[in-house]
């Protein structure tokens, strides 16, 4: 474990990523305490520019709502949607990929056609259609994001499992009389953990982007304040009030950047390139 952290910490960007991520997490947890009032409440005159009023450092939007409060409350939503939808996507993608990769043949053909189908569908458009038809809510958003993001997981798992299945230690397990279920769960899946963790981290980032894009299009949960919604609300007044869109965008950028940095750091730490043997 210490060796892991040493390798991780060697990547300075990854350390910065962790720091930013922790800050966002703290902000999300502290939001209700910092801004006890609803972020939807009108608290000041509309179009208050930032850095002019100490109480509202990031200014207010077209309706006089506090942008700082919206950014703080949006943090929790973004992280929640990001993590839950990624978890759901992993739960769909891992079994499909593992089964396809292990059994191969017809099963693989069938499952991969299914996966390919979902990969061929433009995923943002599908998410838009799904959320629009099932009415925007936290559940429909999370479900839509999970439905459009699992195919890469399935493909990754399939490739990994296929490679591992041909490895001699798995054949040895088969010959030593172990049954298929335990072989997949005990011998194979633990060896796919590193790439799954790395992909999962990157997927959280992508899910946050996707959620913000949906909210931007007006497909956010109407009861929940999210970064994408604020940017969307500021879109039409960008000429008069640039700050409405700017700050939540920076928040998304930082969070997504942090997650990607962490993903890269994990990749370095979990898959150290085997030093080439000197002959």
């Amino acid at each position: 474990m210490t060796a892991f952290w040493v390798r991780y910490a060697r990547n300075r960007g990854a350390v910065a990523g962790i720091v930013i991520l922790v800050l966002v997490l703290v902000l999300a947890i502290a939001a209700p305490a910092l801004y006890p009032r609803s972020p939807w409440a009108m608290v000041q005159r509309p179009f208050l520019p930032p850095f002019t009023n100490g109480g509202f450092p990031l200014g207010t939007d077209t309706m006089g709502r506090d942008i700082a409060s919206a950014v703080a409350h949006g943090a929790g939503v973004s992280l929640l949607v990001g993590f839950v939808s990624t978890l759901a996507a992993l739960l769909i993608g891992i079994p499909i990929g593992a089964v396809a990769g292990y059994f191969g043949g017809r099963v693989d053909d069938l499952l991969m056609r299914f996966t390919e189908f979902f990969q061929s569908v433009p995923n943002f458009a599908l998410a838009v259609v799904l959320v629009a038809i099932f009415r925007p809510s936290l559940v429909s958003i999370v479900a839509a994001i999970a439905i459009v993001s699992w195919p890469p997981v399935a493909r990754l798992l399939r490739g990994e499992v296929m490679a591992l299945r041909g490895r001699e230690f798995v054949q040895a397990a088969v010959l030593s009389g172990q049954r298929t279920g335990p072989i997949i769960l005990r011998q194979i899946l633990p060896n796919t953990l590193s790439p799954v963790i790395v992909l999962g981290t990157m997927m959280v980032a992508a899910a946050i982007l996707l959620e913000s894009a949906l909210s931007f299009m007006g497909l956010g949960d109407p009861n929940i304040m999210s970064w994408g919604y604020v940017i969307g609300a500021g879109r039409t007044v960008i000429r008069q009030a640039w700050w409405v869109s700017l700050f939540p965008g920076v928040a998304i950028l930082l969070t997504v950047l942090a997650l990607n940095l962490v993903g890269e750091g994990l990749n370095d730490a979990l898959n150290p390139r085997l030093s080439r043997k000197t002959r």
Binding site: R167, E168, A172, Q187, N191
Partner: peptide, 16 residues
């Protein structure tokens, strides 16, 4: 009937 494999690196599960 049991088997001994070729690749000393691939024939053991690194996590077991």
């Amino acid at each position: 009937i049991q088997m001994v494999f070729q690749d000393p690196y691939g024939s053991l599960n690194p996590r077991v």
